[in-house]
């Protein structure tokens, strides 16, 4: 299939590349840009393991075609920590023990980051609802919810905003 050119920003870096029109953003990130932090769990938008930020909003990268990302800004889990410093969300996941096998975790980190940018002080119910698009089979979600609340509190107490 003939490739077409796209230009987009990934984790702050401008990228120009040729993609096949049928490639998903997920495949492009993982196989072409070797950003393997983003995971494929179902490939039909149900599990959320492939969640990335596109223009600051969380999307399932398995449901986005690479050409659709042309001109847009994409952030993956690799772009969340800055200068080797974990974000509030990442730090809170470690403190609360909000992960076990880690496969769904990049998606949760992204979804939680998007939520807290939009709503820095969500209630527990809002967190549960907003993370319902991400599946985790290990944690029962309990410590994930606590981690997001902890991150929200850390942001409120004057720390730098979650990236």
């Amino acid at each position: 299939m003939a490739k077409i050119p796209i230009q987009f920003t990934v984790n702050g870096e401008p990228r120009e590349m040729m993609v096949e029109p049928a490639w998903t953003l997920l495949r492009t990130l993982r196989d072409e840009l070797l950003l393997t932090g983003t995971k494929e769990g179902c490939s039909n938008g149900n599990c959320g393991a492939c969640t990335v930020l596109v223009e600051g909003r969380s999307v399932n990268s398995c449901l986005v075609l690479a050409p659709e990302a042309d001109g847009l800004e994409v952030t993956t889990v690799e772009g969340i920590a800055r200068n080797g410093k974990l974000s509030h969300v990442q730090e809170a996941f470690v403190q609360e023990g909000g992960l076990q096998c880690g496969f769904c975790t990049p998606g949760f980190i992204i979804s939680a980051t998007a939520l807290l940018r939009r709503n820095p002080n969500p209630t527990e119910e809002e967190i549960r609802l907003n993370l319902a698009g991400n599946l985790c089979r290990c944690t029962g979600y309990d410590k994930i919810i606590k981690a997001v609340m902890r991150a929200s509190a850390a942001m409120a107490s004057g720390g730098a905003p979650a990236t």
Partner: peptide
């Protein structure tokens, strides 16, 4: 957990 810093930053 010692495994977490890798897993939360996409280095798994």
């Amino acid at each position: 957990r010692r495994e977490d810093p890798r897993l939360i930053s996409g280095q798994g």
